[in-house]
């Protein structure tokens, strides 16, 4: 396939990328460079005077951030919350995808279910935080009232008290908000699979479990990788729910990296310098993690996937020919 792309078409690659590049230069690059540079300066406070690059000790801000216990804690919190939310989220999304795309047992009303499951993603984080704050309210709230009525707790649980509890609630909210999105993503990946592949599997007598694991899953690997990477990035950038529900509670248990950055930059003294350093460090962490995911998963799978598709297509065609 690739050899059909003639070299003469290459220039269109550049031409079609021009709008993106222009918009990127104008609207993204400046703030990014700005942030990077700030990380090496002493830009602090409301009306900073004598702002300059710290030539004597250029990595002063970075060293400060790395030494901060809170930064380390916010990093672990972020990763733990992300894992706590991502694993069940992906699990449920895959399960629903399997159910909804199964060609034999057509789930009635699945259109409605699909629409409804994505709905939590429509509400603003502010609303979600208020609502869940009330639902998990202490000493009185629906969850606690139920627990007390059932005799499971005498006084109710203060969900904002212990670090692990608050993480669980934040992860639950994230899970609830995003499993529908992930499902929509995965389903749209499945829709993109050539139906002939499934027909071939049917003819081979594969049952639905086999079809799902051996055909559907490998074919949506690229979309899964996309979901994984964007979820990782989104997860490490997690801010709305932690800041609205957890930032000042649970003994810093729900304090994420972005909470740290926000506190530095928009506290009473506006430490833009350490905030910038922290975001650069966070950026490096995300790059490292994503690249690991990316290169480990992508290269092998793409090759495998292509081979698989070709084989199946060949089989399908040869069968049709019969």
């Amino acid at each position: 396939m690739r050899n059909k792309k003639l070299v003469s078409y290459g220039k269109f690659g550049y031409i079609f990328s021009i709008p993106f590049i222009l918009a990127f230069l104008v609207f993204s690059l400046y703030p990014i460079v700005y942030t990077l540079v700030i990380g090496f300066t002493n830009l602090e406070g409301l009306n900073p005077k004598d702002v300059h690059i710290l030539w004597d000790n250029p990595f002063k801000n970075f060293a400060w951030v790395l030494k901060s216990k809170l930064f380390k804690k916010s990093f672990t919190n972020t990763v733990v919350i992300w894992i706590m939310n991502f694993i069940p989220q992906m699990g449920l999304a895959l399960l629903l995808t399997a159910w909804f795309t199964d060609r034999r047992s057509k789930v009635k009303g699945q259109g409605l279910f699909k629409i409804l499951f994505y709905m939590p993603n429509i509400i603003t984080a502010a609303t979600v935080a208020i609502l869940f704050g009330q639902i998990f309210g202490f000493p009185s709230g629906p969850v606690n009232a139920t627990l007390i009525k059932l005799g499971l707790s005498k006084e109710g649980f203060d969900f904002q008290l212990k670090p692990m509890r608050i993480k669980a609630v934040v992860a639950f909210i994230q899970f609830w908000q995003w499993y529908g999105y992930t499902m929509v993503m995965l389903i749209s990946g499945v829709i993109g699979i050539n139906p002939e592949i499934f027909e071939a599997a049917d003819l081979d007598g594969a049952n639905r479990v086999q079809t799902f694991f051996l055909i559907t899953l490998p074919c949506i690997r690229t979309i899964m990788l996309y979901v994984l990477v964007t979820s990782l990035i989104g997860g490490l950038n997690m801010f709305d729910i932690p800041s609205l529900y957890a930032m000042n509670h649970g003994d810093n248990g729900g304090y994420t990296l972005n909470c740290f950055i926000k506190d530095q930059a928009f506290g009473p003294d506006n430490f833009y310098d350490t905030a910038a350093a922290a975001s650069v460090l966070m950026f490096l962490v995300i790059v490292a993690l994503s690249l690991v995911l990316f290169f480990i998963m992508r290269d092998k799978d793409e090759a495998k996937l292509k081979k698989l598709k070709k084989q199946q297509l060949k089989m399908a065609r040869s069968r049709k020919a019969y």
Partner: peptide
């Protein structure tokens, strides 16, 4: 592009505003 995706939005917003 992958790199840009990973940039946290919180602080770049301030650079964006000042620009």
């Amino acid at each position: 592009i992958v790199g840009i995706m990973m940039i946290p939005g919180t602080v770049t917003a301030i650079g964006f505003y000042q620009a």
